[in-house]
Design a protein around this nucleic acid. Sequence first.
DNA 1: ACCTGAACACCGTTCAAGT
DNA 2: ACCTGAACACCGTTCAAGT
Lengths: 242, 242
Amino acid sequence: MTQQVEAARRVPLSRDRVLAAAVELADEVGIEALSMRRLAQELGVVPMALYKHVANKEELLNGMVDAIVAEIDPAVRDAGWKRTVRLRVLSARRALLQHRWARRVLESRTNTTPAVLGYMDSFMGMFLAGGFSVNLTHHVMHALGSRMWGFTQELFDDPANENFSDMAPEAQAAMFREMAERYPNILKVATAASHDGGSVVGQGCDDQFEFEFALDLLLDGFERLHEQGWTSEKRADGAPRE
Amino acid sequence: MTQQVEAARRVPLSRDRVLAAAVELADEVGIEALSMRRLAQELGVVPMALYKHVANKEELLNGMVDAIVAEIDPAVRDAGWKRTVRLRVLSARRALLQHRWARRVLESRTNTTPAVLGYMDSFMGMFLAGGFSVNLTHHVMHALGSRMWGFTQELFDDPANENFSDMAPEAQAAMFREMAERYPNILKVATAASHDGGSVVGQGCDDQFEFEFALDLLLDGFERLHEQGWTSEKRADGAPRE
DNA sequence: ACCTGAACACCGTTCAAGT
DNA sequence: ACCTGAACACCGTTCAAGT
């Protein structure tokens, strides 16, 4: 450990080394525990030394996002727009899932970086190459939203009922009764979902399946609109075309 | 101002008063400037006084979310599932848009509160009442994701090009050339979008339109699956039913 | 028993003093 | 000119001392 620090001290700092260490540290201890001070300590330098390579913490986070975006596979060629888009999204999903902090950081970014813009540009290119009109491409990008990054807000991120299995049987029963009374529909859906899944509550959802379910619903919808030649453009008289 | 503080000091603190003040303060100064210390100051009390009404900051944020969720209109009756769901989502959207911090706080919450569970429960109820199977209801809820809260991650939140119009003409032209070279597709889509919109870059997107576009794509998809009697349930031999 | 000021263990970042 | 320790202005929360 001390050896690592010593070795690290010998190699001169660089922006890349700072970013790589930040990604690694966030992977290990979580994004909320990633501070400039802690990162500096990990690199064996004084906190202020970081500020020569990143302007501030905001720029550090931008750089970290770029590093993750770089891990997304390039678009496959000659596969048809639908398959190309689908594969790309699932590749993005894989990259983002490997760094659990990446989703939140990406969402919180307001200044889009070159890497992010580049990804979006190539993404739009897949639709345009597939014959989509510029107009439809625009709306379709909005509809995908953060799904183009391979994620959507999962409403039960880490279900709080992880401790459910640790609870005493009578406490479980009481919670069950309360759920049945106050949230009958949730209970119905949750128990059905875990039917062939895992435990009674929680763990029942296959995130990957749900993600692809929604993705394919949208892609099918896009396909239908594309075939119809749908557009949101107004005609000269101001009435919508459709 | 001092009068307000004086008046506030006279009324005894309560959980509701703390939460209301927190919502108001977040509306005014933004969520990142909302601190326990600042909130206490606004209420004319010592910071530690807050801890008698909320266990910690996390619980304060939970309470704030609940307050916003309470602003969402109840489901309309006898309107058909599609219309009911649509109206509810758009009502949620209105509530969430009135408090720009609410989206981020809602997303960051991991322990779902009773109010949030109640909303989700009534949301599932709309599909079930519309004749959806429990199975389809489950997947459909996942597909809606955060859209059921009336928002989706807008990829250009506050476009950084707000300052674009402030730039010198030659700087604008240079940026334009760089965009054309590095991000040709983004440029194409952006200029087309702002065709009947506003300026050349940015301001071109009607968020409300884009939101409803995606929402309706999904609702139409749900309708189709519902009519087909789609299900993800496995048959006895383990093969998917469809 | 209740209330609260001081203190603790952190932040990101500035700045001036040291080399 | 470069580097960096101390300092500034904050956090959320603990805790003991005061009433």
